[in-house]
């Protein structure tokens, strides 16, 4: 009986802890949005974040896109050969890139780079009392640290994903024309003629949501980190893991919303 009671207690604790964490993250997100839209605004912190999250993520996002686009075209070509439908390869590859792979892979790659560094930076500030120092200097850390990063990531991710889409299609184009015998003109025509604005637009909306999630997770785990090097390490890991899982979950929900009808 005692074992059974302990078992139920443990399940209850885990469940309550999970919902409490969701509540804390929701409150944190609400505060972040409030501070994004109310002055004062820290333009310098915002532009620093744009540079750090946007420009410095270009190499990793670009390389991922090119190789993924190339591999995708190869796979689709091989699969469609069985059905004698190789001509749809450029369109299917482009569709997969702009709707799914561009935003999701871009989001995951930027989450790996940005969520971790944001979490580590803010956690280190917590450990070294820099966040306390901000408070004593009459500066709200949510406004100074969190709002600029979350806003920058939300705005810059669609741009990154657009570049990701273009480079992904370019990767597919290079493989398609050099290895699979497509003519350059036919490949581009098959891609452009069939893609619709909403295919790209839906991916960009997803990208903005993923940008919000990955920055928010970095800030949340950094801001609430434990003490010492272990606390910083745990904050970094939790930020990347939670951002990645939330991006994948949000991707499914958004896909249902955008395309299920």
């Amino acid at each position: 009986m005692v074992i059974f009671t302990n078992f139920l207690t443990n399940i209850g604790e885990v469940t309550l802890g999970f919902f409490a964490m969701i509540g804390r993250i929701a409150i944190f997100a609400g505060l972040a949005i409030k501070h994004i839209v109310t002055p004062p605004f820290y333009g310098r912190e915002f532009s620093r974040s744009l540079w750090h999250i946007g420009f410095l993520s270009l190499p990793v996002v670009g390389l991922t896109a090119i190789f993924t686009g190339g591999a995708l075209v190869l796979q689709i070509f091989l699969g469609s050969s069985d059905l004698n439908a190789q001509s749809v390869t450029p369109f299917i590859a482009a569709l997969a890139i702009v709707r799914e792979l561009g935003p999701v892979l871009g989001g995951l790659m930027v989450a790996g780079r940005v969520s971790s560094s944001v979490a580590a930076e803010i956690a280190t500030m917590r450990v070294t009392e820099q966040i306390d120092a901000l408070l004593t200097l009459s500066t709200n850390p949510m406004k100074y640290l969190v709002a600029p990063r979350v806003l920058a990531a939300t705005l810059v991710m669609p741009l990154l994903v657009l570049i990701n889409d273009i480079l992904g299609i370019l990767g597919g184009y290079l493989v398609g024309t050099s290895r699979l015998g497509f003519s350059g003109h036919a490949y581009i025509k098959a891609t452009v003629d069939n893609l619709e604005f909403w295919d790209v637009g839906s991916g960009l909306i997803k990208a903005a949501v993923f940008g919000f999630i990955l920055a928010l997770m970095g800030c949340y785990h950094g801001y609430n980190s434990g003490r010492g090097a272990q606390g910083v390490g745990r904050a970094t890991t939790n930020a990347v893991v939670s951002a990645s899982v939330l991006i994948l979950a949000a991707n499914y929900i958004l896909t249902e919303l955008f395309f299920s009808s």
Binding site: M125, T128, E129, Q130, D132, A133, L134, T136
Partner: peptide, 10 residues
Amino acid sequence: GMLFQGAALF
């Protein structure tokens, strides 16, 4: 004004 133990410079 406060001087923190580790200075806490940004």
